[in-house]
Design a protein around this nucleic acid. Structure first.
Length: 504
RNA sequence: CGGGAGGUAGUUCAGCCCGGUAGAAUACUUGGUUUGGGACCAAGGGGUCGCAGGUUCGAAUCCUGUCCUCCCGACCA
């Protein structure tokens, strides 16, 4: 039987999980660590993504990458380091990120003359120009695009890169906010404003499609207010998801950059009439943060619940036997089932490890969120059945061995859909309209989720509301209903409701 | 960066106040019995007590510094 690489992943053996009710933050950490998605590292704020967690990321990456290619994008790779002079070229962008940049100032270490065996930074090896470790790549990419774009024939330029970035955050949380993280960033250049706006929206749709249909995470598509906008963008579109504790999570962003970067880096093109103009730009990204959202939106007190379409393992088969003879018999039957499952493209693992008993394995795979578990024992063989347990509802039932592969394939689809619907129901139940300030505050404190309320459109009011309630405007939903009303805080006239929430 | 907690065996933790041979459970190894929801018996291996200094005849324990983690806050396109 060909061994799936994941068969060799060693799992964390911890048993005790903190419950959500007891301590939501700790529950989240427990799931990440004990579910073997990631580990803490020796570097402050940085984590190690373990094989199981990385397999999840790889699945997400592969699907997204295909979606990008299907929409005409190609991959490239730009440097990690950005010369400071380039970085500061687009002023607003530079300002926005300045406080969280790691900076390389030297290029050499040397032996400490006063402390043998130790190294110090060689003061002689100071860089003439400091290098910023990219918090995002607009600067380095647009300085490059300048040389790539001369005429409208070079446009549109549709490039994506898979990369790591560094943002020096005060406080980090596994996956949700780490100093270094993995993401993709698309950077496109267009001849017209409209085309760039279309691209921005198109990629938002791609994100929404991916997150909803593959991660089973319902999202609200919207536009950010100026306060929450990407530094250097004209408009920031976003998808917002809701976590089980009622806090919102920005799951992806797509920016219409106007001509800001083209002007900063002097990227001009000749149009058909041979007139020079600056190109129009977009950028868009999602990161490993999505994994954090996935965990917090779906999982329960028994562990992770991973959506089948991106789960590293979709099915685990656990044999139940007395003695080698039974084990062999079961093994032979399982071999056939695995073959059938693999023919249907299902990711399956057979855990016939003798070290642990079935009950232990059940608990372990539940902790790790494997969508479907199949248990098969001698008794089942006699009756030509297996026991199928689904992780999302924890329901168990027997089903005939013949046709079990198709049964599982359908079950995986059903689980995927059920997870989405369950999350969507929770999300929809946590969007509340209000026109009263007292209720607004009460909703945020007691119910959580999104609060749909009128806002007078000023940054000052938004800021004040944040001060008073810690809630921010997550977005102005796309195709938002226009409705006259009064601002929840100031009572000033408003033409539409916006979504407030406390957020990660 | 502020407040709080913590770092001792792979893991969870006791020991620290009151300095004197480093412990438990679990995991691991071996043998045996087991196996339908986290098995049991027996034997065994495993720790420079986060790191670096200091005090002391002697430091896991006292002192200083430093690194890392967690929680709350500030910060966060």
């Amino acid at each position: 039987m060909p061994k799936n690489n994941l068969n060799r992943i060693s799992f964390e053996m911890g048993k005790e999980l903190t419950s959500r009710a007891e301590d939501y933050s700790q529950w989240y950490n427990d799931l990440i660590i004990k579910g073997a998605l990631a580990d803490y590292s020796a570097v402050r704020g940085c984590m190690v993504i373990k094989p199981y967690g990385f397999a999840l990321w790889e699945n997400m990456r592969d699907v997204l990458d295909k979606m990008f290619k299907d929409t005409g994008h190609v991959n490239a790779y730009f440097p990690l380091f950005v010369p400071k002079s380039l970085f500061e070229a687009e002023e607003k962008n530079a300002e926005g990120f300045a406080k969280e940049c790691a900076v390389v100032t030297h290029y050499r270490l040397k032996t400490d003359p006063d402390n043998k065996g130790k190294l110090i930074v060689d003061p002689e090896a100071k860089l003439e120009e400091e290098l910023v470790v990219r918090p995002t790549s607009e600067a380095i990419i647009w300085s490059t695009y300048k040389g790539w774009i001369q005429s409208y024939r070079d446009l549109p330029l549709l490039i994506n890169q898979w990369a790591n970035v560094v943002r020096w955050e005060m406080r980090t949380r596994l996956f949700l906010r780490t100093t270094e993280f993995l993401w993709q960033e698309g950077h496109t250049a267009h001849a017209t404003k409209n085309e760039a706006i279309e691209e921005t929206k198109k990629m938002l749709e791609v994100y929404a499609d991916f997150v909803e249909n593959w991660m089973a995470l319902p999202v609200i598509k919207g536009v950010k207010t100026p306060n929450e906008r990407f530094a250097g963008a004209e408009d920031t579109y976003c998808i917002e998801a809701l976590m089980q504790d009622g806090k919102a999570l920005q799951a992806g962003t797509s920016h219409f950059l106007g001509q800001n970067f083209a002007k900063a880096f002097d990227v001009k093109f000749s149009d058909k009439e041979n007139k020079l103009d600056y190109v129009w730009a977009t950028s868009w990204g999602v990161s490993t943060r999505l994994i954090g959202g996935l965990v917090m939106a779906h999982s329960d007190d028994d562990g992770l619940i991973l959506p089948p379409r991106i789960a590293p393992l979709q099915v685990v088969i656990v044999p139940i036997y007395k003695g080698d003879e039974q084990k062999t018999m079961i093994g032979e039957k399982v071999k056939i089932i695995i073959q059938q499952l693999k023919e249907l493209g299902i990711r399956v693992k057979y855990d016939d490890n003798d070290n642990n008993r079935p009950g232990w394995k059940f608990a372990q795979y539940e902790l790790q969120g494997v969508p479907v578990r199949m248990a098969i024992g001698a008794r089942d063989l006699e009756n030509n059945v297996v026991e199928i347990a689904r992780r999302d509802t924890k329901e168990k039932q027997s089903t005939g061995i013949d046709g079990v592969a198709f049964y599982i394939k359908e079950l995986l689809d059903e689980i995927q859909l059920h997870m989405y619907n369950r999350a969507k129901q929770f999300r929809d139940e946590h969007i509340t309209k209000t026109d009263s300030w007292d209720e607004f505050v009460k909703l945020l404190d007691e119910r959580g989720g999104f609060v749909s309320a009128h806002w007078d459109g000023t940054p000052e009011t938004e800021e004040k509301i944040k001060e008073l309630t810690k809630a921010t405007i997550r977005c102005i939903p796309l195709n938002n209903e226009q409705e006259n009303g009064k601002c929840i805080l100031t009572g000033n006239p408003s033409v539409q409701r916006v979504l407030f929430a406390r957020a990660y």
